[in-house]
Design a protein around this nucleic acid. Structure first.
Lengths: 145, 145
DNA sequence: CTTTATTAAGATAAAATACTCTTAAATAGG
DNA sequence: CCTATTTAAGAGTATTTTATCTTAATAAAG
């Protein structure tokens, strides 16, 4: 089950690297992130540009420039990042692609899928980047390999 | 959240049309399915060929030929069809694409994703095509629009 | 003012996915 | 045997996604 595009996967990994390695009032360079995670610098740059446009990140050009979170990490929920990367309608899609699938005209797998989406959405909405950053820092979870 | 490719979406819809319109010992033509669901005949034909190779369907060429389920509908679980369409490793993927993500080296969203996958997998494993066909026939759920 | 480090922007290329078309093979029925 | 109907097979095309490359803009520091 592939629930995220490459943009979503790389974008999430990159932003999680950022929150896991906070640098007090400074910007982190995209090069550092892409090198450490072994992801394409240009691809990550493009993804971050979108996240900057959407107000998740702020960026600064020039020496010692880079990107940073637009808000404190405890005020950005995982769901905000996922929706910014994959689209605001991320949790609104019918599994088998029926455009009018919903309570009035449910598709044959509507209930299963709804249950699944609600569960994931809840988890994402309750989890902040700060929480995930802390988990990575304490090595409870990993971001490489 | 797009969990199925077009092949998966169309394939599922097509096979659900088949189980919802059973025709006692006869084959159903692919043309009837593609016309009714307004899907590409050639595309569905290709998808069905794969499902035939994988033992989900049987096919018969010539006049009054078509396709049929290889087993009674109550002996084919939704999960069998989904895995045939999307790959046997459908439920084994890390959300953010880390190749070694697992119990030993969990990624930051491993637990959420695992929970989500298990729930959907359970629902799919417990649901037979017969059950879904019956739901469609009684118009409890819909397959068009 | 010049150099260097950095992101922004967009063009381009490559790869994967989605879809279409053509021809072949099988089989029923006249 | 001939024709019509149907799936099989695979080539071909289109679209989308993924990734790369080039140039511009910004800003720090000497």
């Amino acid at each position: 089950m592939k629930a995220l595009s490459q943009v979503g996967k790389y974008g999430l990994r990159a932003i999680l690297y950022l929150v896991a390695n906070p640098s007090e009032g400074q910007y982190m360079s995209i090069r550092q992130i892409s090198d450490n995670l072994k992801l394409s610098f240009h691809f990550i740059t493009k993804i971050f540009r979108e996240l900057t446009e959407k107000g998740i990140l702020i960026s600064y050009r020039g020496p010692s420039g880079g990107i940073a979170l637009a808000k404190p990490a405890d005020q950005i929920m995982l769901i905000d990042v996922v929706k910014a990367l994959e689209g605001e309608d991320y949790f609104d899609k019918c599994l088998i692609g029926l455009p009018h699938c919903g309570i009035a005209k449910p598709c044959p797998v509507h209930e299963f899928w709804k249950e699944t989406k609600i569960q994931l959405q809840k988890n994402f909405a309750e989890t902040s980047l700060a929480t995930l950053g802390e988990k990575i820092r304490t090595q409870e979870v990993r971001l490489d390999e």
